[in-house]
Simulated assay, not measured.
Amino acid sequence: MTIWEMLAVLAAGIGAGTINTIVGSGTLITFPVLLGVGLPPVTATVSNGLGLVAGSISGAIGYRAELAGQRDRVLKLSAVGAVGGVAGAALLLALPSTAFETVVPVLVTLALVLVILQPRISRAVQRRRERNGGTAHPDGGPLLITGLLLSSVYGGYFTAAQGILYMALMGMMIDDTLQRLNAVKNVLAAVVNSVAAIFFLFVADFDWTAVALIAVGSTIGGQIGAKAGRRLPPGALRVLIVAVGTVALVQLLLYRYG
């Protein structure tokens, strides 16, 4: 890489780390840049996944106050995420890229619809619980576990919009604030990215320069994103999730059909 290409990758890493911590979809910043500097698609995907591990950990640390009291939830959901992450990483090397390119836009669209409708659906679910005398499951129950497992498979495969999928699922099935769920989302992303990265270290080709630049940039971005994201009220956070998700969806469609 030239010095200008290295600076571009570093800047992309900062942007990806920032947006990943607040919402998700940072891969849609770094991935095109890595392709632009000449990396093949699979090498770019693997290098990106390895580099973003540091940013995910940085974002999770930035949200540590919101993680208070969620230890059991985080451990349980992280175990699910780890299994899905390894499976997704294996699929990246085993399947043609078209296998997920068709499904991803559908998943992102569904996630955005769920994020928009989440307050209304949550109120309806709460009213039903009150009528039936039931209580919300602290970890979301089997349906959330299944959804997070599948989302983590996707996250280990590509990661773009992974955080939006997590937020949509948890927002629907866990009775808690968006900021606390966002903190859990950052831990899940860190776990999935880490286990996928460990897998890639042994079986896939990657570019160490790109990995290092994205790691440094996303670590900085993770702290920026945590400081900015924690100040957002729930309504603003929801609007940002939908806005970023819509942009991500458009980019995915252009990548798939453009």
Rank of each mutant, 00 (worst) to 15 (best):
L232T: 04
S152P: 01
K185Q: 10
A160S: 14
G221D: 02
A226C: 07
I214A: 04
A190Y: 06
D175H: 10
I224A: 03
L165M: 15
G156T: 07
Y166N: 07
L169T: 08
V247R: 05
A160K: 06
M172N: 09
P138M: 01
T219R: 01
R129W: 13
S194H: 05
T177Q: 12
S152K: 05
Y257D: 14
R230A: 12
L143S: 15
L252Q: 01
L144V: 10
A215C: 14
S218M: 08
M172Y: 10
A212H: 07
G133E: 00
I224M: 05
L201N: 05
V187L: 10
A197M: 09
G156K: 02
I174W: 02
V191Q: 05
V211D: 02
A248Q: 01
I241E: 11
V184E: 11
R127C: 01
A190K: 04
I121L: 15
A204E: 06
I224G: 01
A212P: 08
G156D: 04
T219S: 15
S151D: 08
D175V: 01
L144Q: 07
E130P: 00
T135H: 10
N132C: 08
P119K: 00
A168C: 08
Q126P: 01
T146E: 06
L181N: 03
V211W: 02
Y255F: 13
L252W: 06
G141M: 05
L150W: 13
S218P: 02
R230M: 12
R131H: 10
V250H: 09
V239F: 09
S151C: 15
L213D: 02
L169W: 09
A210K: 00
P142W: 05
N182H: 07
A228E: 03
M173T: 05
A228S: 05
G147S: 08
L237Q: 07
N182P: 00
W208L: 15
L232R: 01
G235T: 09
F206Y: 14
R120N: 10
V242T: 09
R129E: 13
V153L: 07
N182A: 10
D176I: 03
I220K: 03
K185I: 11
V242P: 05
R180S: 12
